[in-house]
């Protein structure tokens, strides 16, 4: 237990500190409601305009709508850009203090960045669940609402997959952090990487709705596990053996990204110049 103590403390401290930023959460929630509403209406229009195509679609309209609300709710769980704290630590040289702690720097940053992501996502997701999952049905708008999971199995798979998504996203975030640490800027490479995340995580469009020939590749790539796989499990679009495959892919990519990240961190630290003073 003592081995985990520093990391648990670092996670808890960052998480609690970040939760204080209520205004940011509410503002984020408002924006995501707006985008969610627009996307829901676009899907409704598409499905209504082509009834034949909708029958052939791998996702029903109800599934697509639930997917949209959840993707909006979990937006902050996708590793968009570097953790501002770590970027700043590297820029100002206070990274020196992180290296003075008798802990593994990779795991220290990993839990800190993970805490940052989860603490941003949790309040937004809770608000979204209240709005799209509870308020909409109460207002008689069940057709437009965030629906319940398909069944208990789907719910269980989703719960596990969501945890794996956090682990995977944190590992990805660490790679972004390390690019920033090596280049001393969060522009550049990170800007190029941003649209990649939006598309490949399923945030822009559920991955299942892309052409059939691309499906295998889309499912196999690492970003699917950050959002698309948990959401597909929830709406029941991945089930049976595919559900297990989804979890397996998440585990696989998490391990790969952690290994790459650890090697990158060792390299960055060996070449580290502490900025200033």
């Amino acid at each position: 237990m003592d081995a985990a103590r520093p990391y648990v403390a670092a996670f808890a401290s960052r998480f609690l500190l970040m939760l204080q930023y209520c205004a940011a959460a509410v503002a984020g929630f408002a924006t995501q409601c707006w985008w969610g509403a627009i996307k829901v209406m676009i899907y409704a229009a598409f499905y209504a305009a082509a009834p034949g195509a909708a029958d052939a679609s791998p996702m029903s309209l109800a599934q697509a709508i639930t997917y949209v609300w959840m993707a909006q709710a979990l937006l902050a769980l996708t590793p968009w850009g570097a953790d501002p704290d770590i970027a700043q630590a590297v820029r100002t040289g206070s990274v020196a203090y992180d290296r003075l702690r008798p802990v593994d720097t990779y795991w220290l940053w990993y839990v800190r960045s993970g805490a940052w992501m989860v603490s941003r996502a949790a309040p937004r997701a809770a608000l979204m669940l209240l709005a799209a999952g509870l308020a909409l049905p109460l207002l008689g708008l069940s057709d437009w609402a965030w629906g319940p999971p398909t069944d208990l199995t789907a719910a269980a798979f989703f719960a596990v997959s969501l945890l794996l998504a956090v682990a995977l996203s944190s590992a990805m975030l660490m790679l972004v952090n390390l690019v920033v640490a090596a280049t001393l800027t969060d522009r550049g490479a990170v800007t190029l990487y941003n649209p990649l995340v939006i598309v490949l995580s399923g945030n822009l469009l559920p991955l299942a709705l892309y052409p059939d020939w691309a499906q295998t590749a889309l499912l196999m790539q690492p970003f699917a596990g950050m959002l698309d796989i948990p959401l597909r499990l929830y709406v029941g679009q991945l089930s049976g053996a595919w559900a297990w495959a989804g979890l397996g892919l998440q585990v696989f990519w998490t391990l790969v990204l952690i290994l790459v990240g650890r090697a990158a961190l060792t390299r960055v630290m060996t070449r580290l110049d502490v900025q200033g003073g």
Binding site: P6, A9, R101, P102
Partner: peptide
């Protein structure tokens, strides 16, 4: 530079360091 957390009270920063150093 500072090793304490800018937004944390001093005592909480100490607690966190004690955890980090076990």
């Amino acid at each position: 530079r500072t090793q304490l957390w800018w937004d944390l009270p001093v005592s909480e920063g100490f607690d966190l360091l004690a955890d980090i150093y076990r």
